[in-house]
Measured scan of single mutants.
Amino acid sequence: VKVYLPNKQRTVVTVRDGMSVYDSLDKALKVRGLNQDCCVVYRLIKGRKTVTAWDTAIAPLDGEELIVE
Rank of each mutant, 00 (worst) to 15 (best):
V1S: 05
V1G: 03
V1L: 12
V1I: 11
V1D: 00
V1M: 10
K2N: 10
K2D: 06
K2T: 14
K2M: 08
K2L: 06
K2W: 07
K2E: 06
K2V: 10
V3E: 03
V3I: 07
V3K: 04
Y4D: 04
Y4H: 14
Y4Q: 14
Y4V: 14
Y4P: 00
Y4M: 14
L5E: 02
L5D: 00
L5V: 01
L5K: 00
L5I: 00
P6Q: 06
P6H: 03
P6L: 02
P6S: 08
N7H: 08
N7R: 05
N7T: 03
N7E: 09
N7C: 05
N7L: 03
N7D: 14
N7Q: 08
N7K: 07
K8A: 12
K8D: 10
K8S: 11
Q9M: 10
Q9S: 11
Q9P: 01
Q9H: 04
Q9L: 05
R10W: 15
R10A: 10
R10H: 14
T11C: 12
T11N: 00
T11Y: 06
T11H: 03
T11E: 11
T11P: 00
T11D: 08
T11M: 13
T11W: 03
T11K: 06
T11F: 12
T11S: 04
V12I: 11
V12P: 03
V12Y: 14
V12A: 05
V12N: 07
V12R: 11
V13F: 02
V13E: 02
V13N: 04
V13L: 09
V13Q: 05
V13I: 14
V13H: 00
V13P: 03
T14A: 12
T14G: 07
T14K: 13
T14V: 10
T14Y: 06
V15F: 13
V15H: 10
V15S: 09
V15M: 08
V15P: 08
V15Q: 03
V15I: 11
R16W: 06
R16L: 12
D17R: 11
D17F: 11
D17P: 15
D17Y: 07
D17H: 07
G18A: 05
G18H: 08
G18C: 08
G18S: 08
G18D: 10
G18T: 06
G18E: 08
G18I: 01
G18F: 04
M19P: 02
M19I: 06
M19Y: 06
M19Q: 14
M19S: 11
S20P: 03
S20C: 07
S20Q: 02
S20L: 01
S20F: 02
S20E: 01
S20W: 02
S20A: 02
V21S: 02
V21Y: 13
V21R: 01
V21F: 06
V21T: 00
V21L: 15
V21I: 04
Y22F: 12
Y22R: 15
Y22Q: 14
Y22K: 14
Y22T: 06
Y22P: 00
Y22M: 10
D23F: 12
D23Q: 15
D23C: 01
D23W: 07
S24D: 01
S24M: 12
S24F: 06
S24Y: 05
S24T: 13
S24N: 05
S24A: 15
S24G: 15
S24R: 01
L25P: 06
L25V: 04
L25M: 04
L25S: 01
L25R: 01
L25W: 00
L25C: 06
D26K: 12
D26A: 15
D26I: 10
D26R: 14
D26L: 10
D26V: 12
D26H: 11
D26P: 00
D26W: 11
D26G: 11
K27Q: 06
A28K: 04
A28D: 06
A28W: 06
A28M: 13
A28C: 08
L29G: 01
L29W: 04
L29Y: 04
K30Q: 08
K30A: 08
K30W: 00
K30R: 13
K30N: 05
K30G: 06
V31Y: 07
V31H: 05
V31T: 14
V31A: 15
V31S: 15
R32Y: 13
R32P: 04
G33V: 04
G33W: 00
G33D: 06
G33Q: 04
G33P: 00
L34C: 04
L34H: 02
L34P: 02
L34S: 02
L34W: 08
N35S: 14
N35Q: 08
N35F: 05
N35E: 14
Q36V: 13
Q36W: 10
Q36Y: 09
Q36P: 13
D37K: 08
D37A: 06
D37H: 11
D37Y: 06
D37E: 10
C38W: 09
C38G: 14
C38Y: 11
C38A: 13
C39I: 03
C39P: 02
C39S: 04
C39N: 02
C39Q: 00
C39A: 05
V40Q: 15
V40F: 02
V40I: 11
V40L: 08
V40P: 01
V40C: 11
V40A: 13
V40N: 05
V41L: 10
V41E: 01
V41D: 02
V41C: 10
V41M: 03
V41T: 02
V41W: 04
V41K: 03
Y42C: 04
Y42S: 05
Y42W: 06
Y42A: 00
Y42D: 01
R43P: 02
R43V: 03
R43W: 01
R43S: 07
L44F: 09
L44R: 11
L44D: 04
L44V: 11
L44W: 12
L44G: 03
L44Q: 07
L44K: 13
I45T: 07
I45Q: 12
I45W: 11
I45K: 15
I45F: 09
I45Y: 12
I45M: 05
I45N: 05
K46A: 14
K46S: 12
K46T: 06
K46E: 15
K46R: 13
K46V: 02
G47C: 02
G47S: 03
G47K: 03
G47V: 02
G47H: 01
G47M: 00
R48D: 08
R48I: 15
R48Y: 07
R48K: 15
R48T: 12
R48Q: 11
R48V: 14
K49W: 08
K49E: 02
K49S: 02
K49Y: 03
K49H: 04
K49F: 04
T50P: 03
T50V: 15
V51D: 03
V51Y: 08
V51M: 15
V51G: 03
V51Q: 13
V51I: 15
V51S: 07
T52D: 00
T52C: 10
T52G: 00
T52P: 00
T52Q: 07
A53S: 12
A53Y: 06
A53E: 15
A53Q: 12
A53I: 00
A53W: 03
A53V: 04
A53H: 11
W54A: 05
W54T: 02
W54L: 03
W54Q: 01
W54Y: 03
W54R: 01
D55Y: 04
D55G: 09
D55Q: 13
D55E: 11
D55A: 06
D55C: 05
T56P: 04
T56A: 14
T56Q: 14
T56E: 15
T56M: 11
T56S: 13
I58T: 03
I58Y: 15
I58H: 02
I58G: 03
I58L: 13
I58C: 13
A59C: 09
A59G: 14
A59N: 06
A59S: 14
A59T: 14
P60Q: 15
P60L: 14
P60M: 15
P60I: 00
P60N: 10
P60G: 14
P60W: 09
P60Y: 14
P60A: 15
L61A: 09
L61T: 08
L61Q: 11
L61K: 10
L61R: 11
D62F: 04
D62T: 11
D62Y: 07
D62I: 13
D62R: 12
D62M: 12
D62S: 14
D62Q: 14
D62K: 11
D62H: 12
D62C: 15
G63P: 05
G63S: 11
G63Q: 05
E64C: 04
E64F: 01
E64D: 05
E64H: 07
E64N: 13
E65I: 11
E65C: 10
E65Y: 07
E65R: 06
E65T: 13
E65K: 10
I67V: 09
I67T: 08
I67F: 15
V68A: 06
E69V: 05
E69Y: 02
E69D: 08
E69I: 02
E69A: 05
E69N: 03
E69M: 03
